[in-house]
């Protein structure tokens, strides 16, 4: 089999339950390489849970996850992760450069400290997100958008083949949003696969190639225009679905 044909991500029969209450039911997903894919669905649809289950952060009740044809733990080095910005304490005593360097810890291995090369790499990644001037700034003194960029830089330094990002557009300014979109597209054009938890259906068509529509169950996966149909939205969002669909058409 040609390496181009291996799916970047394959999820089979994934079910996740909290206290025996299903949050995700029997999800099957195959994402080809080189696509920019949004994971969308209403609140409580299990978008973040899907991401966390794929990354092995929560244990699924059933199911298999394969990254480039291998189990997650084997191909971990091919994965970059951007958690929700609100998941960490930004008052932690560290600066932007240091946070980016954390992305190197996985490949550094035990006992080794990041060296000069890692620092240079971190600076390059900060430059890519337009944050080079803020390298030494304490992270609590960064704006929401800047914090998000630092998180992106940390994922970039992981030099992954597939990126998972959890709500990178939440609480960021318009400039940052544009910068992030451009960055995502650059990554896609470099042949990387990017999955992004997203909640804004308005921007879906402009930003993404593919969409995964979820509401506990998988409702659809494929090119955005095929998935974001009024019927699908009604299934995902209930009565509001039709309204949202109409709003999107106009």
């Amino acid at each position: 089999m040609n390496s181009q044909q291996i799916a970047a991500l394959e999820v089979q029969d994934l079910t996740v339950a909290y206290h025996e209450k299903p949050v995700l039911w029997d999800i099957d997903i195959t994402v080809p390489q080189g696509l920019l894919t949004a994971i969308v669905g209403p609140n409580g649809a299990g978008k973040t849970t899907l991401l966390k289950a794929i990354l092995g952060l929560i244990k699924p009740a059933a199911g298999q996850v394969q990254i480039f044809g291998q189990s997650y733990s084997r191909n971990r080095r091919m994965v970059g992760y951007v958690p929700q910005r609100s998941s960490v304490d930004w008052d932690f005593p560290t600066n932007a450069l240091d946070v980016v360097l954390m992305g190197r810890y996985g490949s550094l291995g035990w006992f080794k400290r990041p060296g000069k090369k890692d620092h240079e790499l971190a600076m390059t990644c900060l430059e890519k997100v337009g944050m080079a001037d803020f390298a030494n700034r304490q992270i609590s003194r960064l704006s929401g958008g800047q914090q998000q960029r630092v998180f992106l830089a940390r994922a970039l330094i992981q030099d992954a083949n597939i990126y998972f990002m959890d709500e990178p557009f939440v609480g960021v300014d318009a400039t940052t949003e544009k910068a992030i979109v451009n960055l995502l597209k650059t990554l896609r054009d470099e042949g990387k696969t990017v999955l992004v938890v997203h909640h804004d259906l308005q921007t879906l068509k402009d930003y993404f190639d593919w969409a995964i529509l979820l509401n506990v169950r998988l409702i659809g996966i494929g090119p955005v225009q095929d998935i974001i149909t009024t019927d699908n939205l009604r299934v995902a969002y209930g009565g509001r679905g039709a309204e949202i669909g109409n709003a999107l058409e106009t």
């Binding site: 092995g56 952060l57 992760y81 954390m102 992981q158």
Partner: peptide, 9 residues
Amino acid sequence: FDPDFAKSM
């Protein structure tokens, strides 16, 4: 700082 990220690595 970020246990989830650590675990993902």
